[in-house]
Design a protein around this nucleic acid. Structure first.
Lengths: 143, 143
DNA sequence: ATATTAATGAAAAATTTTTTCAATAAGGCA
DNA sequence: TGCCTTATTGAAAAAATTTTTCATTAATAT
């Protein structure tokens, strides 16, 4: 996890952003989180490291991290549209397998979906640019 | 499209809900829409049929229709978490292919995904219950 | 150390969604 | 048909969420 932090820090720097105390606290909370968190929840967590952290900064930082692809939103049907989770698989495209009970999120790679998409593209004439997959179930512990 | 309306009406009735003027207006707007709409947009459209329709009723009706699986939310990354579109493929599971430019939504069936999910389930130990796929691209007209 | 300027936090504003409640109208039934 | 019951509605208010503004702070290059 410390590894993740370092990588993220470097990434921010290399993009010309400053690595502030507020951002560090938010990144740490994200890296520690096993489950997706709303801005509010993330704020609560991150404040354990940085007491005076404002919720506004959480919103701003999430927007930044989302732009840089360091976090991803978690969608499931109606809910959780505004929950975020750290992106851990650094290489390539991946998706989320979310536990309905404990909220734990597992990343899984893209494999085998390409085929489906290629056929879809051929059949519909759409120029496919991106896709988003989310799978919900119960993790081994929660079953 | 008129067909769709009739089916929806019957479905509401059979579930014990009343087919009111407000709901009819909302259903018509949804059935006519080629693209996903936010509650606000839907309200604007539906009011052309029913002038005094309140936005609250749109929210309530969407919640109901979502519960009955007559509409689905459209997600794409950060945006559109709160946009809805009518479910047209009546049988079985399907997903959305969304045009980035004009917002048009095409439904496509589930085929070939089952395999991917079966393998995922075997590998992770999750009991997979549902999934959500959304593909974004540009439709033939918009390319 | 200092200067530059991006980033922060607080407050206010804007936006979105939900709740409350009295009035209305849908659908069943005589 | 016309009445009765009760789900549904719309308006207003409240709650929740997100964004903007702006003076202050602190991260980084020098």
């Amino acid at each position: 996890m410390t590894d993740l932090l370092k990588i993220w820090g470097e990434r921010l720097r290399s993009e010309g952003y400053r690595l502030t105390r507020a951002r560090r606290a938010i990144l740490e909370a994200l890296a520690a989180g096993e489950s997706h968190m709303t801005p509010e929840e993330l704020h609560r967590q991150a404040r354990r490291r940085h007491r005076s952290l404002g919720l506004v900064t959480v919103y701003r930082t999430l927007a930044l991290l989302e732009k840089l692809n360091l976090v991803q939103r978690v969608h499931q049907g109606a809910l959780s549209c505004h929950s975020f989770i750290a992106v851990r698989l650094p290489t390539g495209h991946h998706h989320h397998l979310v536990c309905r009970t404990c909220g734990r999120v597992e990343e899984f790679p893209d494999c085998a979906l390409d085929d489906v998409l290629r056929r879809l593209q051929a059949r519909t004439g759409f120029a496919i640019e991106s896709h988003h997959v989310e799978v919900v179930g119960r993790c081994p512990e929660c079953q």
